[in-house]
């Protein structure tokens, strides 16, 4: 095969049009203030808490409380400093919490995209018995609150073996507590992501598969080289919708993590609510900490927002 010969995948992909539908045309609504006024009001409603959080993170506690009754609460005015940020780093090991949350969240997102997209592909493209029932069961798990099976899951993971590496070899230990495994593995498979991928893959013409099969591609090749490249918005949406709850994960780490060096950022928030201090609740530090842990969320959303909106518009799935 020559180097520039078309592969089955490229042939099939070339035959396809991206299945995304065009977003609503701006057309005649452009310049109509009645369209923009409610949108601006809505945007302001969502932005105000962020402004309050960021502005307050630079103010001393007393000024935050004094500003609460005026618009000054949302503005970076008054006695501004970085003291709250310094206080945050004094009070909690922020870097360590960030590291744990980043490793866990990125691992879950990346592994989740692989596993869930493959599951979605199988459910959307492969013909096997009980496919509909299987998808129904997966969707049904969405209505079961995590809190109801959290403790049984603790029992389960505490009885699983784990290989622990030492400088002089490795050992087999029982129980996953205080490990990255316990924070990552239970959350890789995600019913909502599987459903999202299934829906999205169904919207891609099946003729692509047939063309690829004629060219000799197997199912994995079709998944990897034909269908997945066309499912960018689904991947982006799944990434965002997986990232958010994992970054905000709180209950599960409380149950399975006892060591401080394995705690994620949301558990760190509770360090600021210790009682019996003359200074009272350190609101300035709390705002500084929440600002710090919100930045990654905003960055991820900004990175993927275009594809996110495109996916929602085309698959009819809302998070």
């Amino acid at each position: 095969m020559s180097s520039n010969a078309p592969t089955p995948a490229t042939t099939a992909a070339a035959a396809a049009k991206p299945p995304t539908r065009p977003l609503r045309s701006s057309g005649t609504d452009k310049g109509n203030p009645w369209t923009y006024i409610p949108l601006v009001l809505l945007a302001v409603t969502f932005v105000l808490p962020l402004l309050f959080m960021i502005s307050s993170s630079f103010k001393p506690r007393d000024q935050i409380l004094a500003d609460l009754t005026s618009w000054r609460a949302f503005l970076p005015v008054g006695d501004l400093s970085l003291d709250n940020y310094a206080g945050v780093f004094d009070r909690v090991p922020v870097g360590q919490f960030f590291w744990v949350s980043t490793v866990v969240t990125v691992s879950i997102v990346v592994l989740g995209l692989i596993v869930n997209s493959m599951a979605g592909f199988a459910l959307a493209r492969l013909n096997f018995r009980g496919r509909g029932v299987l998808l129904g069961i997966i969707i049904a798990t969405l209505i079961v609150p995590f809190e109801t099976f959290a403790i049984p899951m603790v029992y389960l993971v505490s009885n699983l073996p784990r290989v622990v590496l030492h400088s002089d070899g490795f050992a087999l230990r029982m129980g996953w507590a205080n490990s990255y495994e316990v924070l990552i593995i239970p959350f890789i498979a995600n019913a909502f992501s599987i459903f999202l991928f299934t829906q999205y893959y169904r919207s891609i013409p099946k003729e692509l598969d047939e063309a690829a099969r004629v060219d000799g591609a197997g199912w994995f090749r079709i998944y990897r080289s034909v269908i997945s490249p066309l499912a960018g918005p689904a991947f982006a949406t799944s990434a965002i919708l997986t990232f958010l709850p994992q970054w905000n994960s709180y209950l599960w780490p409380l149950l399975v993590i006892q060591q401080e060096n394995m705690r994620p950022v949301q558990v760190g928030m509770r360090y600021f609510f210790a009682s019996a201090t003359a200074e009272g609740t350190p609101w300035g530090q709390i705002m500084a900490y929440t600002s710090l842990i919100t930045i990654p969320v905003i960055l991820v959303f900004l990175m993927f927002q275009r594809a996110f909106i495109s996916s929602i518009a085309s698959s009819g799935v809302k998070g």
């Binding site: 403790i151 409380l254 149950l255």
Partner: peptide, 9 residues
């Protein structure tokens, strides 16, 4: 909550 989790495991 952490104690309950630790007791379970």
């Amino acid at each position: 909550t952490s104690v309950q989790g630790a007791a379970a495991s």
